[in-house]
């Protein structure tokens, strides 16, 4: 009777208000059968980590268009690690130069999607990651 759903936190950290991308991706993930927790604009990394923990999400998807990605992504990854959420995928999108994306990936961030990527790419990426991870959430 295991009815495992993929749970995704779609969050907009930072001060920019461009939530179009976040909303389009949130709607696309829902349409792909996932449970999407949306928390609105201007989230701090602390709020994002606390929410990810309480909601026990599999994936945290961040949309960053403010140029602060090199600060925000690593901070979220670190906070998740600190709170014991070691099996969470941190992915996202925004205006992120390829070079920065590589640096972030080295710090444990997943794939980052630039402007103009099809939502289906993100959906497939998350699904594939989830399947690869195995049966679902572990209990520890």
């Amino acid at each position: 009777m295991n009815d495992k759903k993929i749970r995704v936190l779609v969050a907009k950290p930072g001060l920019d208000g461009h939530d179009r991308g976040a909303k389009v991706i949130a709607a696309a993930l829902r349409d792909a059968g996932m449970e999407v927790i949306y928390t609105g604009l201007h989230q701090t990394p602390e709020k994002i980590a606390a929410t990810a923990l309480q909601e026990d999400v599999d994936v945290v998807a961040l949309s960053v268009l403010s140029g602060a990605h090199m600060t925000l992504f690593p901070r979220v990854v670190d906070l998740l690690q600190e709170s014991g959420m070691t099996d969470v995928l941190v992915t996202g999108g925004g205006i992120i130069p390829a070079e920065d994306a590589e640096t972030l990936q080295a710090k444990g961030v997943g794939r980052l999607f630039g402007p103009g990527t099809a939502t289906t790419d993100a959906v497939e990426y998350i699904r594939a990651w989830f399947t690869d991870r195995g049966v679902g959430r572990s209990t520890e």
């Binding site: 001060l15 920019d16 201007h42």
Partner: peptide, 22 residues
């Protein structure tokens, strides 16, 4: 920049990483 657009001073902790960016 975004901190200014939102009415925050550049030294507000909320603005980390965003000062002068956009």
């Amino acid at each position: 920049d975004f901190p200014t657009l939102m009415g925050y001073d550049s030294d507000d902790p909320l603005c980390e990483g965003e000062v002068g960016k956009c």
